[in-house]
Design a protein around this nucleic acid. Structure first.
Lengths: 295, 295
DNA sequence: GCATCTGATAAGGATAACTTATTGGAATGA
DNA sequence: TCATTCCAATAAGTTATCCTTATCAGATGC
């Protein structure tokens, strides 16, 4: 069988036009090199080297083979270089899935930090609902996802990053004392605005408020938090807003954010990956980076 | 060390996503393949395959490595294909040197014949004087030359092709009986026109006529046979012309060709190559082809 | 719970590859 | 002319590698 060793030895012969020197270069004895060259010629069924009493030269075919061999060896080196590169912590390609209620708020902080700290990392992003992310993660088309815990899949690992407190967003026209801590009961009779089906934030909000029996008849579900907040600002109702969204979304004076009374409701944000994934260390490092940018 | 085998096995794993099937494809046992993959991962210092109880998948780095490996294997196959091609009789690249008093007369017959019989042959041609050809042959920048024998270099092999009879070209105005066989003595007092220094034909002509003491004072040497013949046609003198040139050159009615008396002078045309050249068979085949086209 | 399927591991034998020492053939130089 | 030198090939023996069969360990599914 054709081997890389043969090609390497042969390229050395081409460069030195001397078996002994070529053998030195590849750190073997001259007979070892001679044998490999002989094997290569036998393998290819063709003379590559013209042996002359005092010197050697390559045949025209030999020159062509040497050219091709050099090229192959170079690509081999490229492959090794790539591997070395990819073996660094948090480098190479990582496919990260993020839920829509996090992506627009975390990425603007995360991406610059990653670029700075791990310049070799190529992040491929996908934003969709938790269920799809988990499915893609299990299938292997994603490496890791950032979502609300728990997922509780037996073959997935969960790494908590931070607690994201829920706030109540109401229209500023309501003139509520912002220092007042809201209880779930304060939502009685309010029109609770929600994201559309499938968003985990919707489910979390409902499970918190569910026992209250508030009015949600008008709720067909919005497609984004920004949309929900526009509705709040316009006085259509109230909504529950994760704190991480607050900085970005609330430039609008028509919205007032109210904190809930203790124990404050919250969602736990974390990274999830396959337990069998060999990139555990990478994901732990990514989690650390996420903690840094979310304080 | 990174080996070709590891890459081949790994690409098989990528294609089957199953160690057992991949092992079947490359015709080894499953443990053998597993070990090679393990070695490859160790060699590259990075996980390529994510082992799951029931199935496996490649890591993103693994996919990239597999892509590069496939490419390398393909080039490896190309190299083998090239070698197979080049191992055929008279195929691949051959650098042929020819002397000027042969090239224009033999090539028009030789090249079409070669193309037809050996389509895989790439002939690189060089036309210059014998001394240069021999030097380049010995140096290795030519593989074989077609010239007049003997060369009598100890490390060169000579293979005669055919005898090229010399004819005497005279001006038709001389009204000589064309059936008359010329003797060297008939050249007495003639102005013998010759090629310039270095042409073997000049030397051969002189060695044949040298003992005669003919007038050659006006001879500074022409650069081509065509030039010499123009001079003959114009009545400046006579010349000795190899028969192989006759067909091509003598469309001119102002020139009459005369045969010499037995033993007719001639030159022996042959192929010459380095005794150490491994392409002996190729050159023998080339000689055969040359005999065919020169009858 | 048992059969089945996965890849990993273990042990032993075959093969390949390397080492040093030597040979053979040609060129060099006294 | 003959000894010397140079270079690659060859020989013999050891080492390392690779592969095989057999077995294991974990997970899955009937």
């Amino acid at each position: 069988m054709l081997t890389f060793k043969q090609l390497r030895y042969f390229v050395a012969v081409q460069q030195h036009l001397h078996f002994g020197n070529a053998a030195d270069e590849v750190c073997v004895s001259q007979p070892a090199l001679s044998m490999q060259i002989r094997d290569l010629e036998k393998e290819l069924g063709l003379s590559l080297v013209e042996r002359n009493a005092r010197s050697i030269r390559l045949t025209p075919s030999g020159e062509e083979i040497a050219k091709r061999a050099s090229h192959i060896l170079r690509q081999m080196q490229d492959l090794k270089d790539y591997a070395e590169h990819a073996a660094l912590p948090l480098s190479g390609k990582i496919r990260l899935g993020i839920i829509p209620s996090l992506a627009p708020y975390i990425l603007p902080k995360l991406l610059p930090a990653l670029t700075k700290q791990y310049p070799d990392l190529q992040l491929e992003l996908r934003e969709t609902l938790t269920a799809s992310l988990v499915s893609e993660l299990k299938h292997g088309s994603l490496d890791v996802i950032l979502a609300a815990l728990p997922i509780e899949e037996p073959d997935l690992e969960e790494e908590p990053i931070f607690e994201d407190q829920f706030l109540l967003a109401v229209s500023s026209s309501r003139k509520i004392d912002e220092r007042k801590r809201m209880g779930a009961t304060d939502l009685h009779g309010e029109n609770l605005l929600l994201l559309e089906e499938g968003h985990c934030l919707r489910d979390q909000t409902l499970s918190f408020c569910g026992s209250i029996g508030q009015n949600q008849s008008a709720n067909l579900g919005a497609t984004s938090i920004a949309t929900v907040l526009h509705m709040v600002a316009s006085g259509y109702g109230v909504t529950v807003l994760p704190e991480i969204c607050a900085d970005t979304e609330i430039a609008d004076e028509r919205i007032t954010l109210l904190r809930f009374a203790e124990p404050q409701p919250s969602r736990r944000i974390g990274l999830i990956w396959r337990k069998t994934s060999p990139r555990n260390d990478d994901f732990i490092a990514l989690a650390e980076c996420l903690r840094d940018v979310t304080n």
